[in-house]
């Protein structure tokens, strides 16, 4: 399967990239690692007239400690995040989530920025043009039907990135550069929770940096991923938990889920349930139930929605117990 035709732009600096985006007419698409976009272009899910390849913008690559915490360039490969000593020590839930992405070779290519901006996925959507024609297309691309929520007018394709739930529990912020201004938003405010629009990023904007605050530095955490294969797969459900403990008592805690809704979502009510308490099996069950209640899976993947929701409950519970029990800091 060939790729659609496009003009290729290869900026060397962020300024150049942003001005290229501003000048370009027609449908423009930014590409970083390409691990999701290139196959999707083969399937004609994207057919930009201009492709702006960011791989040459080296200033957007790298991990730096700063006064406010940690700064990660959006083009930093997931493999680098996985093996970075600072992240492993200070923000372990992110290292674990990065490690869970796809496979080693794909982690060498895929970037943190790309993982945050990942397109939503659905078995009725991530198919070839010929396949989608045979199902009458869908609301997300080329059609007006939703096959998983018949009669619905919204897209329920799921966000299936592994690192965003980890970033959410770490209270990450992101920086977005446009031609006129640079803005900074909480990651939690970035997503729309709609499968088609998915995120608040203009087509002329670039996600440039990820900031991890000092406030969550040193939080213990874990990421659990439901997958059939031990490698390669996108998550069928995922949960990240992170918490700070003192003397066996939970001070702060957060949980976020992925691959169940059109956006990665923080699970609300966790802190209220856990703060000031010693973790018990009953509390862990409660947190699991909260995570499951946040999940709205539909038949977007091969495993049934019921099972995926059940698993996010189990995974949240187990992750929490494991994190709370592995020695206090």
């Amino acid at each position: 399967m060939s790729l659609p035709e496009f003009q290729l732009r290869r900026p060397k600096t962020l300024a150049e990239a942003v001005s290229l985006l501003a000048q370009t007419d027609g449908i423009v698409q930014v590409i970083a690692g390409g691990t999701d976009l290139i196959p999707s272009m083969r399937q004609r899910l994207f057919a930009p007239s201009e492709l702006v390849d960011l791989r040459g913008v080296t200033e957007l690559r790298g991990i730096r400690q700063s006064a406010e915490g940690l700064e990660i360039g959006a083009l930093t490969p997931l493999a680098e995040i996985d093996r970075n000593e600072i992240i492993r020590r200070d923000y372990p839930v992110l290292a674990e989530a990065a490690h869970a992405v796809a496979s080693p070779v794909l982690r060498n290519m895929g970037t943190i920025g790309g993982n945050i901006c990942l397109d939503t996925r659905c078995l009725w959507y991530n198919q070839s043009l010929a396949w989608r024609k045979s199902c009458g297309y869908c609301i997300k691309k080329d059609g007006d039907l939703c096959h998983v929520a018949p009669g619905g007018t919204e897209c329920w394709a799921v966000f299936a990135g592994d690192t965003p739930p980890a970033l959410l529990v770490l209270d990450a912020e992101i920086e977005i550069a446009g031609c006129d201004a640079t803005r900074r938003v909480r990651l939690a405010d970035f997503y729309t929770n709609q499968g088609d629009t998915r995120m608040k990023l203009g087509s002329r904007e670039i996600l440039t940096r990820v900031f991890l605050p000092r406030s969550t530095r040193g939080w213990r955490g874990a990421y659990r991923k439901l997958r059939v294969r031990g490698s390669i797969d996108y998550p069928l459900a995922g949960v990240a938990v992170a918490l700070r403990m003192r003397n066996g008592v939970v001070e702060n805690a957060k949980a976020a889920i992925t691959a169940l809704n059109p956006a990665p979502l923080l699970v609300s009510g966790i802190e209220e349930q856990l703060a000031g308490k010693t973790l018990t099996a009953v509390l862990a069950e409660t947190v699991g139930a909260l995570a499951a209640n946040t999940a709205r899976p539909l038949t977007t993947s091969a495993l049934t929605p019921e099972y995926r929701r059940e698993m996010v409950r189990v995974m949240a519970k187990r992750a929490l117990v494991e994190v709370a029990s592995c020695g206090s800091r």
């Binding site: 078995l123 009725w124 024609k133 045979s134 199902c135 009458g136 007006d144 039907l145 096959h147 998983v148 018949p150 009669g151 539909l298 038949t299 091969a302 049934t304 929605p305």
Partner: peptide, 13 residues
């Protein structure tokens, strides 16, 4: 079979 629905409301393929 897989869940979801192919044809609904008289629409679809």
């Amino acid at each position: 079979e897989h869940g979801g629905s192919l044809c609904h409301g008289g629409r679809g393929p």
